[in-house]
Simulated assay, not measured.
Amino acid sequence: MAAPRSGHRTVVTPDRYAEVLRHLRHVVADLDAGDRLPAERELAGTLGIGRAALRRVLGDLAADGLVETRHQSGTYVMAASSCVRALGGRGRREGPVREHPPAHL
């Protein structure tokens, strides 16, 4: 990851952007339809990216039908069938069911 600029901004390289996008695709695939993602500020901090970059990632996930952002409410996982289609037909990954996103987002 690139060094932060003044004003506490983090430069997100195309490789880092793709890495975060890929990571969130898999996180969302492990969640249930209707689950709410953490708040933007929290999620951006956890991922080590700025909120503007996170919004671009969430916009890409929304365009793929994986999530829906509701004004002043949050970002929610869409129906499981949308997730399966967006991930190329792969269903949920094996493993325990989680009620909340993992702490390492």
Rank of each mutant, 00 (worst) to 15 (best):
R93I: 04
A39T: 06
R25N: 10
P101R: 01
L87V: 10
R51D: 06
H8E: 06
P4Y: 01
M78Y: 04
M1V: 07
S6W: 03
R25H: 09
R22D: 12
P101N: 06
D30M: 11
R93S: 14
H100L: 14
G59A: 14
H104S: 15
R5L: 15
T10M: 08
V27L: 12
R92L: 04
A39K: 14
V57H: 00
P38Y: 03
L43Y: 11
G59Y: 04
L87Y: 07
V20N: 01
V12R: 00
L54W: 00
R51V: 15
V28W: 00
R51N: 08
L54R: 00
R55I: 02
R41A: 10
L24F: 06
A80I: 04
H26N: 05
R92V: 04
L105M: 07
S73D: 13
T10V: 15
S73A: 14
V27K: 00
I49G: 04
E40N: 13
R85M: 13
E94W: 09
R85L: 10
H8I: 08
V11A: 10
H71N: 09
L87K: 08
R41T: 14
T75M: 01
G88R: 09
D60E: 15
P102I: 05
A80V: 08
T75W: 00
L58G: 00
A53D: 14
G89K: 11
G48H: 04
Y76R: 01
P14L: 12
D64C: 09
Y17G: 07
T13S: 15
I49W: 02
A53R: 01
R36S: 11
L54P: 01
A3D: 11
A86L: 13
D60W: 03
V12K: 00
